[in-house]
Amino acid sequence: MQKRIAVIGGGIIGATAAFYLGYLDQTQSLSVTLFDDDLGQATKAASGIISPWLSKRRNKRWYTLAKEGASFYRKLVTDANLGTNVYQQTGTIVTRKDPNDLDSLFQEAEIKLRHTPAMRSVALLSSQDVGKRLPFLTNPPAGILVEGGAKIDGLRFVEALLDQAQKRHVEISRQRVFFDESGKLRTSKGLESFDKIIIATGAWMKGTLKPLNYLVKVRPQKGQLIDLTIKSKHYGSHLPVLMPESSSDIIPFEHDKLVVGATHENDGGFDLKPTSEARNRLLTNAKAFDQHLQMDQIDRVRVGTRAYTDDFAPFFGHLPDNPNILLGGGLGSSGLTTGPLIGYFLARAVVEGQLGVWDKYTKPISHYII
């Protein structure tokens, strides 16, 4: 008899977990259903960067998870047959305002490169060099090019993984489900029992686990991005990403689309309305590097809700007293880098029937869920 598996949440963790549950379950001993209602999902609103190596963050667990998460994309792209419209390794350019800080960062990059093959290579670029690589900019900054850096379209990523999951007999159910006090799920079919459940509901996890009397220490954070149309012979999807210090990332995509963002609004809660303040701030940030950008080039403002923990670190594992309910969350702004690896780990734990040793990536789950 097949074991019934539920995945709650179709964002970056849930979609990756659902795909790998189908991919790894070669004997088809599992019956997998993913439940998701799409509301406010951070992944689908995001376009992001996979380039964690020169981050200012000094959390060793986070860096280990992010570093291995960036490397994991090579396997994921192959396993899920992801196209360049989803994930593209075009390199990232990281900047620092102070030239001395930039030199120090380059020395750090050279050291990390020795034991981080995913970085591929690094180069110190003058502002003129950056201008050659991003010729549509009118005021390019000096920076460090990391050849292994990549960009990803969150919506296309999730859609591609769920499409592949369905081909591997994973059912996608577009609805919000709730626990009852006994641990069963209340669905459109009534109360249903599952052998194992993966919870990946992001900023909504507190509400997901409330019926089971757990307190989840996560908070919502509103993030907004803008999409602009760039009509220039110097523009193209092959261009690297610009990651300016203390400013908004600038991400060139195909079809003349430029993405700028994202905001980090701690008081935005679950509000999904775009704001003129965020739109104006993002455009101003981008105009510091391309003075030709205008308000009428903005096609849309995208809005999503991230989940943050008090120590800004992701978590994953199983409920303290229930190994059959696994979960991952608290991704914050690094979700596109860390989320897929977490989803993979959780799927493997279900398929292989045993939990991994994850203490080098995350604190005990009891630090975040009580």
Rank of each mutant, 00 (worst) to 15 (best):
N59Q: 14
I8V: 14
G329W: 03
A307S: 10
Q221P: 06
L24G: 08
G207C: 08
G223I: 12
L82I: 11
L293M: 11
R300V: 09
H255R: 12
S51C: 15
L209V: 14
E254V: 00
R176L: 08
D103C: 05
G317N: 10
V77H: 03
Q2N: 11
A262Y: 10
V218F: 12
T16H: 04
P220V: 13
G14F: 07
K151S: 02
I198M: 04
K273M: 08
Y63L: 15
K60T: 15
P252G: 01
R300C: 06
H255A: 11
G48N: 08
W204E: 00
D321C: 04
D153W: 13
S247D: 05
A45N: 02
P220D: 09
A109Y: 13
L125R: 01
G335H: 07
S121K: 10
L209S: 13
T138V: 11
P320L: 05
L272N: 07
H318A: 15
L242R: 02
F136P: 01
V94C: 14
L283F: 00
A150H: 06
F136W: 15
E147F: 04
L346T: 01
Q175H: 08
G332K: 06
A46E: 10
T362I: 14
L34Y: 09
S31C: 07
A70L: 06
Q297Y: 02
V86G: 13
T275R: 10
P252M: 04
K273V: 09
E254M: 02
L331K: 03
G353N: 13
S51L: 12
M295R: 04
L155E: 15
Y23D: 04
K206L: 12
G332V: 04
Q41K: 12
T263D: 07
L82N: 13
S246V: 01
R96V: 04
K67R: 15
A66W: 13
K112M: 12
K189E: 13
Q2I: 05
I365L: 02
K67H: 14
G148H: 03
T229Y: 07
L185G: 06
Q294S: 10
A288Q: 13
G48Y: 06
I370D: 13
M295S: 09
I152Q: 03
V177H: 00
G207S: 15
Q88K: 13
G343R: 02
Y361S: 10
G69Q: 07
G236R: 10
W204Q: 01
Q28Y: 08
L21M: 09
N280W: 02
W358R: 05
S71A: 15
M243S: 10
A200Q: 07
I5D: 01
Q107H: 09
A262N: 08
